[in-house]
Nucleic acid binder design. Structure first.
Length: 461
RNA sequence: GUGGUUGUAGCUCAGUUGGUUAGAGCGCCUGAUUGUGGUUCAGGAGGUCGUGGGUUCGAGCCCCAUCUUCCACCCCA
C-alpha cells in the first residue's frame, strides 16, 4: 500500500523539529518564570464535554471518534431500517449514538473540565500552562492546519485584572525572545455589549460582533450589509457607524466611548477594566510589543466575557495576517461542569503559525540546530571498544558525540558526517591506539591533526 | 460546508494537435580512491503518470467520480 497521512496533518523532520522545539522551549521558559505549572489532558474528550462549547460552527469542526467494538450492534436492524427509511432520520442523534468521544478542539474547555474534576486538589488561583496539539476538521489553507499546537496559559479562580496584565507581559516576553514584532490588540466584551445596548440590539450582540470583526477585511459597506442581513434595524446600524469608526489614540477612543456608553453600566464597567490595564501598561512599559484598543476585535468564541486579546504580526516584510495568539476572560466556563462562579482568563499561542512567520522572516537563530559535534569513525571491534571509552568521557563533559555504529567504509562514514554537518571527526585506528592519540579532522577546513584527549576537548568546547 | 487549484522518479519539474520504449536537474547507489567527506570523472538503480471508471484503433494528455495539495469564503491558533 501507498504510505499517506490524513488530510491536513503533517510529519515533522529533524530540521523542523529543532525549530519547533525552540518555540515551545521559549514559551515554556516564560510560563515557568511567571509561576505557571504544566498539565496535560488526553487527546480525546467525551462528546458531551466538547459539544456546544464552540458554537454551531465549532460543533461541525469536531473530529468524532467512532466507539470501539461495533456500535451498530446496539441498534437492532429493524430499528436501523426504520430510522434510515424515515424521512425524519436524525443523523446527528445517530452519530452521537455511535460516537461517544472526540478529539479536543482547544485546550480551554478540557482545562475547565480538569479544574472541576480536580477542584479538591487545586489551590486557587490556579495558574496552569498546557502545550499540546488540538484538532479541527477545517479545510486546510494558509496558516491553518487540522492538527496544530496550542500553547495555553490560564489563571482560574481570580477576578483580578492583574492577571490580564501579567498575560500581556508574558506575550511581550515571548515575542521579544523570539525577535518577532507584534501588535497586541485589546478589547472587552462588556464594551461590545454596551454598544449593542446603546444601538438597541442587545439580543444580537453575537451577530454584531461577528460582523464588525470583519471591518478590516471586507470594509464598512460589506459590514453594514451583513448587519442588515442579520436583521439589525437601520436606525441601529446608523447609530453604530460613529462607534465602529472611532479614530485616534487609545485615550481618545476611551473618552469618546465613555460618552457613548454613559447609559450602559456594563459598557462603563468594560471601559473601567480596559483603563486599568492600559494604565498599568503605561507605568510598566513592554519591551517590544505594541498594543492598542481595537473595538472591532470580537473573537468568535462565545465564552469570553471580559478582556479579549489577539496578537498579530507587526512586520512589513510579511503579509501574514492571521492571528498568532488569542485569548480573553471567561467568567463562568466551569459552570456547565458544575462549578459556578469561577472566573478564568488565558491566552493561547498558535505555535504552528508562529513557526510559519519566523521561518518566512528568517528569525530562527543559527544555532537552533545544535547537532552532533564529534563523530568517531568505526574501524572494527577493537577500535570500537577504545572509542566507546572516549565517547563516554566526552558525553559526560556535555559534548554531543556519536560513534558510527558499524565498521563501514571510510567514505560512507565521512559522508555521514558531512550529510549531518558534524564539524569534527575523530579517526582512531591501531596507530592512534598505540600512541594514545586521536586524529582529529576539522570538516570545515579539511585539516587534521594528531592530538591528545585534552586538546580534543579544548577544540570542541 | 461553498468556490477554485494541484498531482509525472526520493525531491523540483519538462512532456508538442491524443501516436513507438515517459525525460531533465538534484539526490541516491557503485567504482576511479581496500584510513578520508564536501569538488571532479565513469557507470547504475529507481515510474501501477494520485486512484477508480469511461471515450478511443491508441490516453500522462480528453470526460466522470474520488482522494490529495494549495488558495479564498465561512470560521479560527
Amino acid at each position: 500500500m501507498k504510505p499517506a497521512i490524513p488530510k491536513g496533518m503533517r510529519d515533522f523532520s529533524p530540521s523542523e523539529m529543532v525549530k519547533r522545539q525552540y518555540i515551545f522551549e521559549t514559551i515554556k521558559k516564560v510560563y515557568n518564570r511567571f509561576g505557571y505549572q504544566p498539565i496535560e489532558t488526553p487527546a480525546m474528550e467525551n462528546t458531551e464535554t466538547l459539544l456546544g462549547k464552540y458554537g454551531d460552527e465549532g460543533d461541525k469542526l469536531l473530529f468524532r471518534v467512532l466507539d470501539n467494538g461495533n456500535p451498530l450492534n446496539q441498534i437492532t436492524s429493524a430499528e436501523l431500517a426504520a430510522r434510515f427509511g424515515a424521512s425524519l432520520f436524525d443523523s446527528a442523534a445517530f452519530v452521537n449514538h455511535i460516537s461517544g468521544k472526540g478529539l479536543r478542539y482547544d485546550l480551554t474547555v478540557p482545562f475547565a473540565r480538569y479544574v472541576v474534576m480536580h477542584q479538591n486538589d487545586i489551590t486557587f488561583p490556579f495558574k496552569r500552562y498546557q502545550i499540546q496539539p488540538v484538532w479541527r476538521a477545517d479545510r486546510p489553507q494558509k496558516g491553518r492546519y487540522r492538527e496544530f499546537y496550542q500553547c495555553d496559559a490560564d489563571v482560574i479562580g481570580s477576578n483580578s485584572l492583574l492577571n490580564e496584565f501579567e498575560l500581556i507581559q508574558m506575550i511581550d516576553e515571548v515575542f521579544t525572545a523570539l525577535g518577532l514584532k507584534v501588535l497586541i490588540q485589546l478589547n472587552n466584551r462588556k464594551i461590545l455589549q454596551g454598544i449593542a445596548e446603546y444601538i438597541g440590539e442587545t439580543e444580537k450582540i453575537i451577530e454584531i460582533t461577528v460582523a464588525i470583526d470583519k471591518l478590516d477585511k471586507i470594509g464598512l459597506d460589506q459590514v453594514n450589509n451583513e448587519l442588515r442581513s442579520k436583521g439589525i434595524s437601520e436606525t441601529a446600524i446608523e447609530k453604530l457607524q460613529p462607534v465602529i469608526q472611532l479614530k485616534g489614540t487609545t485615550t481618545e477612543k476611551i473618552n469618546a466611548l465613555k460618552n457613548i456608553l454613559a447609559q450602559s453600566p456594563v459598557g462603563l464597567k468594560g471601559i473601567e477594566e480596559l483603563t486599568y490595564i492600559f494604565d498599568l501598561l503605561q507605568q510598566l512599559p513592554l519591551q517590544s510589543a505594541q498594543y492598542e484598543l481595537e473595538l472591532t476585535l470580537a473573537r468568535g468564541l462565545n465564552y469570553y466575557t471580559g478582556a479579549i486579546i489577539e496578537v498579530k504580526v507587526n512586520d512589513l516584510r510579511t503579509d501574514f495576517s492571521s492571528s498568532v495568539l488569542g485569548g480573553g476572560r471567561y467568567d463562568d466556563l466551569t459552570g456547565i461542569f458544575g462549578l459556578p462562579n469561577v472566573s478564568g482568563v488565558g491566552i493561547s499561542f498558535g505555535a504552528d503559525r508562529i513557526y510559519d512567520v519566523l521561518n518566512a522572516l528568517n528569525l530562527f537563530p543559527e544555532n537552533v540546530a545544535a547537532t552532533t559535534k564529534l563523530l568517531f569513525v568505526n574501524f572494527g571491534s577493537n577500535e570500537e571498544k577504545y572509542c566507546l571509552q572516549l565517547l563516554g568521557k566526552i558525553r559526560k563533559l556535555g559534548i554531543t558525540a556519536e560513534l558510527f555504529p558499524e565498521a563501514a567504509k571510510m567514505k560512507k562514514q565521512m559522508g555521514y558526517a558531512d550529510a549531518k554537518k558534524i564539524p569534527f571527526v575523530a579517526i582512531i585506528g591501531d596507530e592512534e591506539i598505540k600512541s594514545q592519540t586521536i586524529t582529529l579532522k576539522n570538516m570545515t577546513t579539511g585539516m587534521q591533526d594528531k592530538v591528545d584527549f585534552e586538546t580534543l576537548v579544548q577544540q570542541l568546547s
